Simulated scan of single mutants.
Amino acid sequence: MEVQETHTTCPDCGADLPHRDPQPTDSHTDGGVKTGPAQPAARQSKHQRVETSANLELPIGLHHDVLGRRTAAALFDSILVVAILQILISRPSPTALLLLFTVPFAYFIVLEAFWGKTLGKLMLGLEVVTESGEPISLNQSIVRNLLRVIDGLPTMYLLGFILAAFSDRTQRLGDKVANTLVVKNGGP
């Protein structure tokens, strides 16, 4: 029995996804025992199935790719938010004081709830989705982003980074509680 290999294309990244179907093509019998060409060793697929209700398939090694991109996006977003806060600090007023506390949360909550990504995630080809692959709701965005306070402990998102690094789906605490994922969206 020889394994016939057909190919499909990943709808997300365009990668070639081999699919193997055993079909009898050239077998011989020797005393009642079927013999034939040796089966080729199974090639490891470039994708692995992630357990979600959408049954997403992600490239093997994507965990580290998403973690790296996610870290770079967080750095970009942090620099942008700090720049905005610097402008607010330079113009003291009661409104500026109020904005000092709301801008950091509003930036992430609003952009992720309505676009599915911050500017940093946009630049690095990432998107925030539900565990079933759907766009996140405003409530999910609020939950995942308010928990940034805990993910940011003890300093510079160390807890969030450790949780994401050891999570099968690169989820920090905010993602786990809100049932969200950060995934590569076919960007750069």
Results as ranks from 00 to 15, higher is better:
E2V: 14
E2T: 15
C13N: 06
C13A: 08
G14Q: 00
G14I: 00
L17Q: 08
L17K: 05
D21P: 00
P22Y: 07
P22S: 13
P22C: 00
Q23D: 06
T29R: 15
T29S: 12
G32Q: 12
V33I: 14
V33D: 09
T35Q: 08
P37F: 10
P37L: 10
Q39H: 04
A42N: 10
Q44Y: 06
Q44S: 13
S45K: 02
H47D: 05
H47A: 04
H47S: 03
H47Y: 13
E51Q: 14
E51W: 14
T52H: 11
N55E: 12
I60M: 05
L62W: 15
L67G: 05
G68T: 15
R69V: 08
A73I: 08
A73G: 14
A74K: 07
L75C: 06
D77F: 07
L80Q: 04
I84E: 02
I87F: 12
L88P: 04
L88H: 01
R91W: 11
L100T: 03
F101L: 12
P104R: 01
P104L: 01
I109K: 09
E112Y: 10
F114Q: 02
F114N: 04
F114D: 00
W115I: 11
W115Q: 01
G116S: 10
G116A: 04
K121I: 01
L126S: 02
E127A: 10
V129W: 07
T130S: 14
S132H: 03
G133R: 01
P135E: 09
N139E: 10
S141T: 10
S141P: 10
I142E: 00
V143H: 07
V143E: 11
R148D: 08
D151L: 07
Y157I: 04
G160D: 08
G160F: 14
F161M: 13
F166R: 08
S167P: 00
D168W: 05
T170I: 05
Q171E: 03
R172A: 10
L173W: 07
L173D: 02
N179F: 04
T180R: 11
T180C: 08
L181E: 04
V182R: 05
V183I: 15
K184S: 09
P188H: 06
